[in-house]
């Protein structure tokens, strides 16, 4: 909206100007209406609904009883069990984000610095190709690769570097890293590609060595990409559900699985709702912190 502030100043008539402004603002509103509606119907309303449900008593079948209210489910969030589940999930998501960043940055940097545009596009397509097939199918494929007779296991055994990874924590990390790495690479690529290389050159002219130029110039300038990528990886990792189940053998309880349990065999929708609101709150807080730290340059 701030973009619209610049207006031709030769219009002296304030009355006319206000009218034009109002018309413009209405136009803007109607243009954005589908998006507003979309957000209200598919985001705001469901959010309100699950928040309301989280304060309801549960019926014998686990459904919320609207009209009878309780704070029990929010108090239950303080249980040591729930706290450990939340802590474990946040830690896993954080580690995965860090790993993705460490792996994704050099990757994105390398792609973005290829001279030929054709080559860059080709490499980007390679990053995107996995999205052409379903995530669940790809996770099952990993299961085959990682099991006792799997290719990855055989290679590990031959080189003596690793053993069978299926149903271990490294397998979960591998699965998450594989699944969400593109979300890290793409924003990083966009940020690095748009970088003004003259600034790096200037740093080198001022006797900064390659390392210093990278840390003082390239890295800060690609910060928006780091932030966007980290958010895009952190959020789905926090709710990860399929990967820990299929590759980790559901050996540990994570937030995503814990919430599903509440809606199914646990028969406690209100508590599931409270957990869902909590996960959303954690994501919001994480996003806000990231934005604060990185300014508004997204």
């Amino acid at each position: 909206m701030t973009m619209l502030d610049e207006r031709p100043s030769e219009e002296a008539n304030p009355e006319l100007e206000r009218k034009a402004e109002r018309a413009e603002s209405w136009r803007g509103f109607f243009t954005a209406l589908p998006t507003y509606l979309y957000l209200v119907v598919f985001f705001v309303l469901p959010l309100i609904i699950i928040t309301v449900i989280s304060f309801a008593e549960r019926s014998r079948t686990g459904k919320p009883v609207l009209g009878e209210w309780t704070l029990d489910w929010w108090i239950k969030l303080g249980d040591p069990l729930v706290r450990s589940v939340v802590f474990r999930s946040v830690w896993l998501a954080f580690l995965n984000t860090l790993l993705s960043l460490l792996l994704g940055y050099p990757f994105a940097y390398w792609i973005a610095t290829r001279k030929s545009a054709l080559m860059r596009n080709f490499l980007l397509v390679l990053v995107l190709i996995p999205f052409w097939s379903n995530f669940l199918v790809r996770t099952y494929a990993w299961r085959t690769l990682l099991d006792s007779n799997g290719l990855v296991t055989k290679v590990g055994e031959m080189t003596g570097l690793w053993g069978k990874m299926l149903f271990t924590e490294p397998a979960v990390f591998l699965g998450l890293l594989y699944g969400y790495l593109p979300f890290m690479v793409l924003p990083l690529y966009a940020a690095i590609e748009h970088l003004d290389w003259n600034l790096v050159e200037a740093a080198r002219d001022l006797y900064a060595d390659a390392r210093k130029a990278f840390i003082k110039v390239t890295l800060p300038l690609s910060k928006p990409g780091i932030i966007a990528g980290s958010i895009l990886v952190f959020i789905p990792s926090l709710g990860a559900y399929v990967t820990p189940d299929l590759l980790g053998g559901s050996k540990t309880t994570l937030l995503g699985n814990y919430i599903v349990t509440q809606f199914k065999s646990g028969r406690n929708w209100p508590f599931g709702a409270a957990l869902s609101v909590t996960i959303l709150a954690i994501m919001m807080v994480a996003t806000i912190i990231y934005f604060r730290k990185g300014g508004k340059t997204l």
């Binding site: 209200v40 309100i48 309301v52 449900i53 459904k63 919320p64 009883v65 609207l66």
Partner: peptide
């Protein structure tokens, strides 16, 4: 939002109190 919410809650009120909104 209010209109949508009202539409929702009225149909809720008509049906029953045990089901989710």
């Amino acid at each position: 939002v209010a209109m949508l919410a009202a539409a929702c809650s009225s149909s809720d009120g008509e049906s029953s109190d045990t089901t989710a909104a």
